[in-house]
Amino acid sequence: MATGGRRGAAAAPLLVAVAALLLGAAGHLYPGEVCPGMDIRNNLTRLHELENCSVIEGHLQILLMFKTRPEDFRDLSFPKLIMITDYLLLFRVYGLESLKDLFPNLTVIRGSRLFFNYALVIFEMVHLKELGLYNLMNITRGSVRIEKNNELCYLATIDWSRILDSVEDNYIVLNKDDNEECGDICPGTAKGKTNCPATVINGQFVERCWTHSHCQKVCPTICKSHGCTAEGLCCHSECLGNCSQPDDPTKCVACRNFYLDGRCVETCPPPYYHFQDWRCVNFSFCQDLHHKCKNSRRQGCHQYVIHNNKCIPECPSGYTMNSSNLLCTPCLGPCPKVCHLLEGEKTIDSVTSAQELRGCTVINGSLIINIRGGNNLAAELEANLGLIEEISGYLKIRRSYALVSLSFFRKLRLIRGETLEIGNYSFYALDNQNLRQLWDWSKHNLTITQGKLFFHYNPKLCLSEIHKMEEVSGTKGRQERNDIALKTNGDQASCENELLKFSYIRTSFDKI
């Protein structure tokens, strides 16, 4: 039985969820670079991206490699990797027998973001014989899940209580170790020597080791999670996991709180800001991140802002960003909400898709409305799209047979046209069989910064309504002859009103 693990408890099935942008060198404390989270699957090609990484700022997932063999891993080693800020997950990587050479110096898994409450997941690794993470000293947050690894031993010899604050939620089941077939031998045991430290858990006094050649490092209890030197002297209180010299914040392997210019500090002093819960960055760093993602459509890219001495992905609820200094300031009234469309555009074809934009005031991208039916549609669209004030790209209304009016965009005031449909149009209306009105132009103002209007096959939309939009939106004169079809717009509506004058002759039985 794995020490510190839980057996036999019912657990939810383990679901495996399925960018080499360097964020800056980590400095003297770390020998390499800070790398983003990685999802490495199918083959070993991307694994080489770990070569210079000291910190993975995010998670590391290595999974679904069915053609790899043990010899493929023999020359692979990433000794610079010290810390993973989120979680480490391995799933069905064939041929991998140990992690001792792959990650010989991995010391800390912070667990800032977890995989279903777990910071370390080893699942269905069919050839893994031992973990071998002999320098792993601290899992700051989260638990361990090690399950269905039929060859995995050296679990009962690990004292997880020396690595985690609590072992109650560890789930370590259905491994070879369960069948008591392992016969784990710690260093020196074969020669009758006791080389590794022994600890007591559940009444068992057991030597602690990761492999037959690597003991588990056990520091004096007084050192807590700070770690200790090879001689057993406690590291500085700002260290986490390990250090090369005692009581020196510049000799830590990793930091308990924050890293700044080669030393570990309790908090980031001005003019620095907390970033990702582990390091200090200056304003320029946060500003660069903001600008890199301002026009990016890459998933996970955030326009970072500053709030409460932190550089964070977005302002919290009730705050909006001051564009001059990136500071989050309290909103006066309802907060603006910028919604970034991942692929640059979004099609609204149902109430469900409209709900995804609920509360958005600025759309960074283009909207395509293609709704053919739905219950209580006008009210639903207004509830979900009615706060949109600005669209950076274009607005396209296409084959939306259920629409009679666009009044559900009740606050839309600006279409920038930074991206144009077919390279020309910022407003595009095609084949809307029941569209009769755009907006009530006596109450609604709309500016279209650039781009043209396109109207074709809107049989109940009168040309007068379209011409009014040209005047109000500032697009009059931009359109070419064929942009607004004269014969297919309003051709099934009563669009022309003329005053009919009647004269009559009164007659009676005795007068003409």
Results as ranks from 00 to 15, higher is better:
H212R: 09
F116L: 12
A119G: 07
C153N: 02
H302V: 06
R256I: 09
H290T: 12
E181A: 12
N257G: 03
C223T: 01
L131G: 01
S77G: 08
R46M: 15
G227C: 07
C255R: 00
C215R: 15
Q216R: 07
V173H: 15
S323E: 14
S143A: 11
N308G: 05
C235Q: 00
F116P: 01
I222A: 14
L89R: 02
F103N: 00
L29G: 14
G58W: 00
R297Y: 02
V305H: 04
I40L: 07
K67R: 13
P336Y: 07
P313Q: 06
F115P: 02
E180S: 12
N117Y: 05
S225L: 08
D75T: 07
S77Q: 13
D159P: 12
S213K: 14
S225K: 06
E238V: 02
C268E: 00
S317W: 14
C335G: 05
T157A: 10
T211S: 09
R145V: 13
L88G: 00
V144S: 05
I185M: 09
K224G: 11
N42P: 02
N242T: 09
D159S: 10
G142A: 01
I109A: 00
K193A: 04
D288R: 15
Y273S: 05
C280G: 01
E33V: 07
D277L: 05
G241C: 05
K310F: 04
S112K: 13
T68A: 12
C293P: 02
L99R: 00
G227E: 02
L99T: 06
C286L: 03
E151I: 02
P271A: 12
T229Y: 03
H48G: 01
L120H: 01
E71S: 11
F275A: 03
P246R: 06
L174H: 15
C235R: 00
N242R: 10
H59S: 08
R145S: 11
D288M: 14
C264D: 00
Y304I: 03
D288L: 13
E49C: 11
V108S: 09
I163G: 01
I158M: 11
H28E: 07
P104A: 01
N195E: 14
T157Y: 09
H226Q: 06
D178Y: 12
I84L: 02
P249K: 03
F66W: 14
G262P: 02
K224E: 14
V34G: 07
C182K: 14
P271C: 07
S237W: 09
L233G: 13
E130H: 12
G95N: 06
I222G: 13
P271D: 02
W160L: 05
E49S: 15
N309T: 09
D165Q: 06
A190H: 12
E130R: 05
Y273E: 01
Y30S: 09
P249I: 04
N202F: 12
E181S: 08
C286Y: 08
M83E: 12
R145M: 06
F258Y: 14
K176M: 12
P271Y: 14
V167L: 04
K176Y: 15
D39V: 13
P36S: 05
R110Q: 12
S237T: 06
C328T: 03
W160N: 01
H214A: 14
A156Q: 11
S54R: 14
L60D: 01
I139N: 01
A190N: 10
K251C: 07
C255W: 01
N308P: 02
R69E: 09
Y259H: 09
P271N: 04
L136F: 04
N117C: 04
P270W: 14
N175G: 11
L106Q: 00
H291T: 01
T250M: 08
V253P: 01
W278V: 04
K176A: 05
S161G: 09
S54A: 05
T199Q: 11
D72A: 09
S98M: 02
G183M: 06
S98R: 02
C264K: 00
S323F: 12
C209F: 02
R110P: 01
E147A: 13
L233D: 03
D101E: 11
E238N: 10
D178T: 11
G227A: 06
G132A: 07
E231W: 04
R256T: 11
N322G: 09
C239F: 00
D248H: 03
L44V: 12
R256E: 05
G95A: 08
L96N: 01
L164E: 04
S296K: 07
C228T: 02
S161L: 11
N150Y: 05
N295W: 05
A119K: 01
D277Y: 12
E238F: 05
L102R: 00
S244M: 15
S296D: 15
T45W: 14
R263K: 09
V265P: 01
H236L: 01
Q303I: 11
C228S: 03
D165H: 07
C264P: 01
C286W: 03
H226I: 08
T267E: 03
Y118M: 13
V265H: 12
E168T: 11
C228L: 02
L152S: 03
H28D: 10
L60V: 07
R110W: 02
V206T: 15
E97P: 05
H214L: 09
E314I: 03
C53H: 00
L174N: 11
T189H: 14
Y154N: 08
L128N: 01
Q276I: 05
M137C: 12
Y134V: 15
D247W: 05
N150P: 13
H127D: 10
Y171V: 13
L88F: 09
V265N: 02
K193S: 05
F115K: 06
C243W: 00
N308D: 07
K310L: 08
M65W: 02
L152K: 01
C234S: 04
Q216P: 02
I146K: 00
K129C: 08
G58H: 00
